[in-house]
Write a protein that binds this DNA or RNA. Structure first.
Lengths: 120, 120
DNA sequence: TATACTACTATACTAAAGTATATCAGTATA
DNA sequence: TATACTGATATACTTTAGTATAGTAGTATA
């Protein structure tokens, strides 16, 4: 069982800090998590919609990654009793909040590219 | 060659957004990158110091990951002509700025844990 | 009757990531 | 002469991640 740590505590202890940041990293790591989250950021989608927007992902991986994301509280899965059956995937509130993190990552990534380019 | 994209452009196009965020993610992904960066956040260290503070990392992995981080402009490597030779590793300016991203990840991770715990 | 749609699952494989263990060169100390 | 220190590298292995390809159930349409 994980113990709950405050921001202050995590910042003060390098080991706690790395562990806590790693929890977030694990939610978005792997080849397909980010494309899936990205495709759900602006609208909920069905299985085949996500597959179409991402393109080269296999149904096996999409299914597996969606399960992971659901288990981690990032994605909500809703089954509709239509014929044929339809299933909708959407980001949870917490999942939507991840965009703040992604924006920061984007911002840093862009400045980092400029910083490293100027060194060559 | 990667094309340079502004924050606005990346935010406007989901594909560019995912690609740019992924650049950042690649810099910190893998089992050991975060522990290494964490151990260098507050002070420069030598190879064996990093190995000691992380504990169970093998020299093969530490060597490989430090090379990756150096290539990505995250870490600066300085060799001192002592006997025996000493080598110091420190974060670059850009590497230090990553702590802003890590703080955001920490913040989100903590709120996410609370959000998902309350759902059970 | 054959085909297509939905959202997947099964099996077998390849590729990437990480581990374990031993070893290197050069110098200094016991 | 043997041992230890520095910062690694070499080889072989296991484990995890991802791919390829085919197939499932239930219903609807041509």
């Amino acid at each position: 069982m994980k113990n709950i740590v405050s921001f202050k505590e995590a910042k003060a202890c390098p080991i706690q800090f790395v562990l806590a940041v790693n929890d977030t990293l694990n939610v978005i790591s792997g080849k397909w998590k980010l494309p899936i989250i990205g495709s759900l950021l602006f609208e909920k989608k069905r299985f085949s919609d996500i597959q179409r927007t991402i393109g080269k992902i296999t149904p096996r991986m999409l299914s597996k990654e969606l399960k992971d994301l659901e288990m981690n509280g990032m994605v909500k899965r809703t089954v509709y009793d239509t014929t044929p059956i339809t299933v909708e995937y959407e980001l949870t509130e917490s999942g939507k909040l991840l965009s703040d993190v992604l924006d920061k990552m984007l911002e840093w990534g862009l400045q980092h590219r400029i910083a490293t380019l100027s060194k060559n």
